[in-house]
C-alpha cells in the first residue's frame, strides 16, 4: 500500500511538471506581447524593451520556464539592484498590471474560493447523496418524483440565473440577508457565513442536481446486482442491506467524481464569485483575462492544475482503500 501511494505521488509530480510546462508554452504562444502590456498605449519602445529585459521575456522560452520553476522554490528578483522587485518563494511571477507578486494575489484570493468550495461541497454532497438515496429507495413514489424534478431543474438552471434569483429574493425583496460582502472567517465568522450562504446554496443546488441522479441510478443499478440479492436471501435486515451492500457499492464511484469536482471548484468559481462579488480565485482569473495579465493567468491555471492533479491522486489512493479489488498489496 505504501508502495502504491509512493508510486502515485511520483506520477503526480511528473504530471504536474508536464502540465506546468504545457501551460507555460501555451500562454507564451499567445499573440499578445507581455512586455508591450507592461505600460500604457503610448508607451515608448525603450520602456517596453527595458521591461522585457527586466521581466525576463527576452530570454528563450526554456530559460524562462527554468527561471519560473526555480522561482517557485527560491523566490525571484526582477531587475537590477536599486530598482528591483523581489517576490519571495514560492514565487509565481509578477503582475506588471497590478504591480504585485502573483503569489500574494493568490494567497489573498484562495481562502475566499476555498471557503466557497468547502461549504458548497458539504451542502451538495448532503443534498445530492441524501436526495438521490431517498429517490432510489422510494422509487416511483412522490419522493422520487420530487427528486427527479429537482435534478432536472438544477441541471438546466444556469449559475448566474439562479444566483440572480437568489439575490432578488433573499436580498432585494425580502431583505433576509445583507448584500454579500466577503469578510475573512477570522475577522468575523458571522459575516463570513452570511456572505457565503447564498453562493453555497447556488453552487450546491446546481452541482447536487447531477449527484441526485448519479446516486439514484447508482443505487438502483447496485440493487440489481447478484450480491445484493444474495444479501436479501441471507435474511439481512433492510437497513443493513442498504448501508453495507447497496450504499457501500454505489458511493465508491461517486466519491471519486466528487473529489475531482471539488478540486475543479477550488480552481475558482468564476460565475458565482462574480455575481456575489467575492474576491476569490475565479474573480482574479476573470480580471486577468480582461486585462491580458499573463502572469496571473499562468499562475491561476497552474494552481487549478495542481488541485486537480492532487485530487486525482488522493482519489486514486482513496479508491484503493474503499474498493478491495483495486487495493494493491
Amino acid at each position: 500500500m505504501i508502495y502504491f501511494v509512493l508510486r502515485r505521488s511520483i506520477f503526480a509530480v511528473v504530471l504536474l511538471l508536464i502540465v506546468s510546462a504545457f501551460t507555460f508554452w501555451i500562454f507564451s504562444a499567445l499573440p499578445s506581447d507581455p512586455a508591450a502590456l507592461t505600460c500604457g498605449k503610448n508607451c515608448r519602445p525603450e520602456v517596453i524593451e527595458a521591461n522585457r529585459e527586466r521581466l525576463g521575456y527576452d530570454k528563450p522560452l526554456v530559460e524562462q520556464y527554468g527561471a519560473y520553476m526555480k522561482g517557485i522554490f527560491t523566490g525571484r528578483t526582477y531587475g537590477e539592484e536599486g530598482s528591483s522587485i523581489h517576490c519571495p518563494a514560492p514565487s509565481l511571477g509578477y503582475s506588471y498590471d497590478r504591480h504585485e507578486c502573483v503569489t500574494s494575489l493568490i494567497a489573498s484570493t484562495l481562502p475566499v474560493t476555498a471557503s466557497i468550495a468547502l461549504g458548497a461541497f458539504v451542502l451538495w454532497m448532503g443534498i445530492g447523496v441524501g436526495l438521490g438515496t431517498l429517490a432510489a429507495l422510494k422509487r416511483g413514489k412522490w419522493q422520487d418524483r420530487v427528486a427527479t424534478a429537482f435534478s432536472v431543474i438544477g441541471v438546466s438552471l444556469p449559475t448566474f440565473f439562479l444566483g440572480l434569483i437568489f439575490i432578488m429574493v433573499f436580498v432585494i425583496w425580502t431583505g433576509l440577508l445583507p448584500f454579500p460582502r466577503y469578510t475573512g472567517i477570522t475577522d468575523n465568522p458571522v459575516e463570513w457565513f452570511m456572505a457565503l450562504l447564498l453562493p453555497w446554496f447556488v453552487l450546491a443546488i446546481i452541482s447536487a442536481a447531477t449527484y441526485v441522479r448519479m446516486t439514484r441510478n447508482g443505487i438502483l443499478e447496485v440493487m440489481n446486482e447478484e450480491f445484493v440479492r444474495l444479501g436479501i436471501a441471507k435474511g439481512l435486515p433492510r437497513r443493513r442491506l442498504i448501508v453495507r451492500y447497496v450504499l457501500r457499492a454505489a458511493l465508491v464511484p461517486i466519491v471519486t467524481i466528487a473529489g475531482l469536482d471539488f478540486a475543479f471548484l477550488l480552481g475558482g468559481a468564476l460565475v458565482t464569485e462574480s455575481i456575489f462579488n467575492l474576491p476569490g480565485l475565479g474573480k482574479l482569473t476573470l480580471a486577468a483575462v480582461v486585462n491580458s495579465d499573463l502572469p496571473i493567468l499562468v499562475a491561476t491555471t497552474m494552481v487549478a492544475a495542481v488541485f486537480i492533479v492532487v485530487a486525482n491522486t488522493v482519489v486514486d489512493i482513496l479508491y484503493g482503500y474503499l474498493d478491495p479489488r483495486v487495493r494493491v498489496k
Partner: peptide, 24 residues
C-alpha cells in the same frame, strides 16, 4: 419472511463471480 430467508431456506445462485459482496 426475513427470518425464514437464510435460516430455514437458503439459496445458491448461478454466478459465484457476482454473488459475493466485493467489499467484505
Amino acid at each position: 419472511v426475513r427470518s425464514v430467508r437464510g435460516r430455514d431456506v437458503a439459496m445458491i445462485f448461478q454466478d459465484p463471480l457476482t454473488a459475493l459482496n466485493p467489499f467484505y
